[in-house]
Nucleic acid binder design. Structure first.
Length: 228
DNA sequence: CACCAGGCAAGTA
DNA sequence: TACTTGCATGGT
């Protein structure tokens, strides 16, 4: 039984959850990037890293005029690594950016707009085949840069839904993504705002001790990390 | 000092 | 399949 059919109990609570979060925090104005490329680059740089550090790296890239496909494709690896250094894992991320840019340059004429005209599922698989692009990064690019209806799942999504007894602790990325996508309207704007609100909420939830007095979801059942 | 942040891939068993 | 580990800066 591959649970979580559409209209599961947890699924039916999602829209209410969204409304509570939106009432509490308001619009989050995501993704905070100006171009498709900037958003895609930011998605890679943001892997397990605070957004503040990502901003510094992106600002470096802008200042060095490296925020274009041709510039990123041709620039020296060590120079790129130095610019993305504030975002952490800089050697790893410089390589991952090169991998992503290589895909766009070689298969889509260096144009993300061209890539985004292809079949969404096919593009997702193509992105996932790039070393350094996992499911969250791929979905972030597809939702926030391309405007495609893929719900982005992250650590906060899992933590919040598990703490409120809506999923099993060992549930997969696909389980969580399906819960949202099978129970909400297929609306990129809704997915955009909802994920941003999940992150905003997660920032107020300590890893060990939930600050339930300020959590809009405090009345939503269990809030202990051990579900007790 | 410890712990965390808008993950992912590679290695091991 | 299911763990574990390396990657790294910057803020609290």
């Amino acid at each position: 039984m591959k649970n979580e059919m559409p209209h599961s109990l947890s699924g039916q609570r999602l829209m209410e959850m969204y409304e509570l979060l939106f009432e509490r925090f308001g619009p989050q104005h995501w993704w905070p990037g100006e171009t498709e490329l900037e958003i895609a680059i930011g998605a890679v740089l943001a892997q397990n890293t605070s957004w503040k550090n990502v901003e510094k790296a992106i600002e470096n890239l802008k200042r060095k005029e490296l925020l274009s496909v041709p510039a990123l494709e041709s620039c020296d690896f060590a120079a790129l690594a130095e610019e993305v250094r504030p975002a952490g894992y800089y050697n790893l991320k410089a390589k991952r950016l090169k991998n992503l840019i290589h895909l766009v340059a070689e298969e889509f004429r260096g144009d993300l707009g061209v890539m985004f005209k292809e079949n969404p599922r096919a593009i997702r698989e193509r992105l996932l085949s790039v070393n350094g692009i996992g499911r969250e990064t791929a979905d972030s690019i597809l939702l926030y840069a391309a405007g495609m209806p893929f719900f982005v799942v992250d650590g906060y999504t899992h933590r919040i839904l598990f703490r409120h007894g809506m999923v099993e602790e060992q549930c997969t990325y696909e389980d969580l993504q399906s819960l949202f996508m099978d129970n909400l309207p297929e609306d990129p704007k809704l997915y955009n705002e909802f994920h941003a609100l999940v992150v905003r909420t997660g920032k107020d939830l300590c890893r060990r001790i939930p600050k339930c007095e300020i959590c809009p979801l405090r009345d939503w059942g269990p809030t202990s990390p051990v579900a007790g």
